[in-house]
Design a binder for these strands. Structure first.
Length: 271
DNA sequence: ACTTCGACCTGTTGGC
DNA sequence: TGCCAACAGGTCGAAG
């Protein structure tokens, strides 16, 4: 489900209730997520205060003095703040209970997400160590894409969705950014000019920034920390619009599969 | 190092 | 209405 804007929306929603707050208990109802939830999380986290709530790519980090909780929402995960005593639903797998009477509740029907307890610096964890730059950082620009893409034969959409290249660009926003930049998703990454990569980098930044401003995209069930949906889906130009008219030229939006993911594009605007 | 593909899960949707 | 295949916002790891 969530791409970078949805994770950032979640982070902003939950941070105020967590900052400086001690954890009193961790309840795990189902530990079989992408990696089994470690008993050390239940044993070590209680009694410690959450000092910072950060995001790296699509990972959320709850940082304490003795270690960090690393959370990923996978395809169907969400984090909600609920009042203590609220009964859990079927897919509410982990509760982080706070001293202030709130619970940070992790829900994930498909269980592709993860909740990890890391005693080392979170950014040094093997899952985070080799991630690419943040797309909204100055480091990520057209020059970077151009340099990294030379000799790459894969489709540009698959290329920009790779987390070791750049983090946070998932299926929705990759499709939208390529439309915005006028680049066909199947074009070989190594055969795109510097000028076009500059346009693409700017488009990625623009679409992610706009989506964060709208609170993310809710296609089916994404909700932020207080249960509210996002509104960016109303601004989607190509994603999920196959068969409909292109907003720019009126041609019929097409869909193809690239890297086993649906890829929507305008055959006339994108070359 | 790059590329492709299967695997991990449950819930929803669309076609017959 | 019912059944079932296909598909869904992600990413890892194996194999070529």
């Amino acid at each position: 489900m969530p791409e970078l804007p949805e994770v950032e929306t979640t982070r902003r929603g939950i941070a105020p209730a967590l900052l400086g707050e001690p954890v009193t208990e961790v309840v795990v109802r189902n530990r079989s997520l992408r990696y089994p939830v470690s008993p050390a999380l239940m044993r070590d986290l209680p009694g410690n205060k959450i000092e910072r709530v950060e995001r790296r790519g699509k990972y959320l980090l709850l940082i304490t003095a003795i270690g960090s909780v690393i959370i990923h929402l996978g395809m169907s995960g969400s984090l909600r703040l609920v009042v203590a005593g609220t009964s859990p639903n079927k897919h509410d797998h982990v509760d982080i209970v706070l001293k202030n009477g709130l619970i940070l509740r992790f829900r994930d029907p498909r269980r592709f997400g993860l909740v990890i307890w890391s005693r080392e610096e979170a950014l040094d964890h093997s899952l985070l160590r080799s991630l690419g730059p943040e797309p909204l950082s100055a480091e990520f620009d057209g020059d970077y894409l151009y340099q990294r893409s030379r000799s790459r034969r894969s489709a540009v959409k698959v290329f920009i969705m790779g987390s070791h290249l750049v983090v946070g660009v998932g299926n929705i926003y990759a499709s939208e950014a390529l439309f915005m930049a006028g680049i066909h998703p199947q074009r070989a990454a190594g055969r795109i000019s510097l000028a076009r990569y500059q346009t693409l980098a700017a488009a990625i930044k623009a679409v992610l920034t706009a989506a964060i401003a709208e609170g993310g995209t809710t296609l089916r069930d994404f909700v932020d920390g207080s249960g509210q949906p996002g509104y960016f889906q109303q601004k989607l130009q190509v994603y999920g619009r196959q068969g409909e008219a292109c907003v720019e030229c009126g041609a019929k939006i097409k869909s193809m599969r690239l890297g086993q993911r649906a890829s929507c594009y305008c055959p006339r605007c994108q070359r």
